[in-house]
Design a binder for these strands. Structure first.
Lengths: 148, 148
DNA sequence: ATTGTCCATATCAGTTTGATATGATATATT
DNA sequence: AATATATCATATCAAACTGATATGGACAAT
């Protein structure tokens, strides 16, 4: 593939959206991973790893113990898609060996893609978690009554 | 990684550039893979696979027998970078499962990236093999005499 | 016939990805 | 204090992908 999004990113977005949506109706209260795993059909143990990763990059806070769980460490408005994807997929710029420099074709490609990468970074940075969560919430809403 | 270029693409570009450059001084004459593999330091057997791939997508022609070799199947002006990368890395659009549709986050990401992918496609399509080969030729040129 | 090329698969080691297993640590409840 | 339930942290594993190698067939000029 050329542009690649792994399921780790998908799961991470589900996770963060869940925290965002649930915080609306009940702020302050941590959300259990089991709950999210069940609702979004994510393998629980995999979700645990993702939660730890999200915590390590400062996007969420974990509370231990029986009434523990996770909640966003920042407002969903201040968290953008670029930060999330960089956490899950690594830096947007890939070819470390190409950047080496003296390799001819690599150098050419590097020049060609530099501009494009900056553009992608800008666009992803302009999309906030709150926007994504809002769209997800809309799509998840049950059909209006008058369809029944 | 997020945007990824494998060595198969690098080697392919070396291969196609070699054919382009050599065709200038000696058109019609097929170029041996062994020659290219040596000059560009590409594992010969790997290059063979790449040559077959390039042939299967119609970018080069192979001539068998003792005086055989490879040559471009089209003019280097009509071959663009998008075609080459699609041949080596697959379609620029990756997430077949995401495109499925009814998955919420996947659908959102698909929308977000659609525009960007088209943009990348346009930019890569605008860069021809002849341009790349020309740049490569310039960089490969020995230093001018008056530097000695 | 022999040689040197393309052509086509099969295989293999290393890495990445998705997922599971095991257990430690922390805290609210009983 | 004991227990239940949560986060936290590694270790491990199978499948897929990547880079590379191996083996052998088909073809044409000498």
């Amino acid at each position: 593939m050329f542009v690649k999004i792994t399921s780790k990113t998908l799961y991470s977005l589900h996770f963060l959206c869940a925290l965002t949506i649930k915080a609306k109706s009940n702020p302050q209260k941590p959300v259990h991973l089991r709950e999210i795993a069940k609702e979004y059909d994510i393998p629980f143990k995999f979700l645990e790893q993702i939660a730890i990763l999200m915590k390590s990059v400062g996007l969420v806070r974990g509370t231990r113990g029986k009434t523990g769980g996770y909640q966003l460490a920042e407002t969903p408005e201040s968290i953008n898609l670029a930060r999330i994807i960089k956490a899950t997929e690594g830096e947007l710029l890939p070819w470390a060996d190409i950047e080496g420099g003296n390799e001819v074709i690599g150098g050419i490609l590097h020049t060609i893609f530099q501009e494009q990468r900056d553009e992608i970074d800008r666009k992803l940075s302009a999309i906030s978690l709150s926007q994504i969560a809002e769209k997800a919430r809309q799509r998840l809403e049950p059909a209006p009554m008058f369809y029944l």
